[in-house]
Amino acid sequence: MKKTSKALVEEAMELVTTYTVEQARALHGDPGVQFVDVRDVRELEREGVIPGAIHAPRGMLEFWVDPESPYHREEFAHDKEFVLFCAAGWRSALATRTLMDMGLGRVSHIHGGFSAWKESGGPVAEKPTKKRVG
């Protein structure tokens, strides 16, 4: 193995903007900031969500951000700062670096992720359920 996952995360951390949970909480609700949850849907169901965050699973993020992708999502076409988070801050660090490489302007992540957010007393809600039609 040429690079470990730990080495990749450490490299990303040197390049990306990382907010403390306190800084992130101060940004929460700012209309110029969009929180992006890159955790797996099962984590959202089990642990809850940050109100107002959009869910973009790590496996689809690059496709949803890319305006040339058939999977592009309009939420990523706005001129906002995108603050990514996962459970502990590792996946979000890698995702932030990838989005920087893709040319997304203002992108950052939260040190300690959702776990640190929750421990700090940040607002948490249950994952919204989709209404079934039919």
Rank of each mutant, 00 (worst) to 15 (best):
E10N: 10
G103Q: 13
L104M: 11
K131F: 13
Q34F: 07
K3T: 10
P123T: 10
V65M: 10
H78I: 06
I54Q: 04
L94V: 08
E11H: 12
T129H: 00
G113V: 11
H28N: 05
S69Q: 05
E14N: 03
W117Q: 01
G52K: 06
T20H: 02
V124A: 14
A24C: 04
L61P: 00
S120P: 04
H72A: 10
T96Q: 12
R106H: 09
A53I: 07
R58W: 00
S115I: 01
R132M: 15
E81P: 00
K131I: 12
Y19E: 11
A53R: 03
G121L: 08
Q34L: 12
V16E: 01
D79C: 07
L61S: 02
A7P: 01
Q34H: 03
A24T: 06
P51C: 02
G52N: 09
G105K: 12
K130N: 03
G29T: 02
V124R: 12
K130Y: 08
L8S: 07
E68V: 04
M13H: 06
E45G: 11
H55M: 07
R46D: 15
D37S: 13
R46E: 15
T129G: 05
K130I: 05
P51R: 03
S92R: 05
K118D: 07
A125P: 10
V9Q: 05
R42D: 14
G59M: 08
E68T: 09
A87K: 11
G59N: 14
R132W: 06
R39G: 07
E81N: 01
M13I: 12
D40K: 09
V83T: 12
V133T: 12
F63T: 01
G48T: 14
A95C: 12
P128L: 09
V133M: 11
A77S: 15
G112R: 10
G103F: 02
L104Y: 08
H55W: 14
R58C: 04
K131H: 13
D79Q: 12
G89A: 06
G29S: 09
H78M: 13
A53W: 00
W64R: 03
H55T: 01
R42H: 01
E11L: 07
P67G: 08
F63Y: 08
A95H: 02
A56K: 00
